[in-house]
């Protein structure tokens, strides 16, 4: 299982999302192509209902604690409830260019 699949698997388990998208954005950054270091996650789950953005991101970070401690350098998160997702018509923002300061 590559890291992208591991992330998908763990988030499926933790969030039972109705929609989940895990994009590798490693190629956009100043690291080797096989670094498996930059990801963008869009997750739509009932479990986010009644939670602040901070609490939602903490849920995702907790599910991916092992990955975050072992080489994930950037994790962009978009966390929505099913209602919010349909309001936005499935639109999510894109990541910024790197600018190069990858010290860790």
């Amino acid at each position: 299982m590559n890291r992208q699949q591991t992330i998908e698997h763990k988030l499926q388990q933790a969030l039972s999302p109705m929609h989940l998208e895990v994009l590798s954005e490693t190629h956009m950054h100043n690291v080797p192509e096989d670094a498996e270091s930059h990801y963008r996650v869009t997750a739509v789950s009932e479990q986010f209902s009644g939670k602040s953005l901070l609490q939602r991101h903490r849920l995702v970070n907790a599910a991916l604690a092992e990955e975050l401690a072992n080489g994930i350098h950037a994790l962009a998160l978009h966390t929505m409830t099913p209602e919010e997702w349909s309001e936005k018509n499935g639109h999510t923002p894109t990541s910024p260019p790197c600018l190069g300061g990858g010290a860790k």
């Binding site: 953005l53 901070l54 991101h57 903490r58 970070n61 604690a65 975050l68 401690a69 950037a74 994790l75 962009a76 998160l77 978009h78 923002p93």
Partner: peptide, 25 residues
């Protein structure tokens, strides 16, 4: 912070979040 990534933005002594949350707010 029990928050694994940067940037981190604090308002009034409280973490509000990282880049994505700041942009959404």
């Amino acid at each position: 912070a029990d928050w694994p990534t940067f940037p981190q933005v604090y308002v009034d002594g409280e973490l509000i979040g990282g880049c994505d949350i700041t942009l959404e707010l």
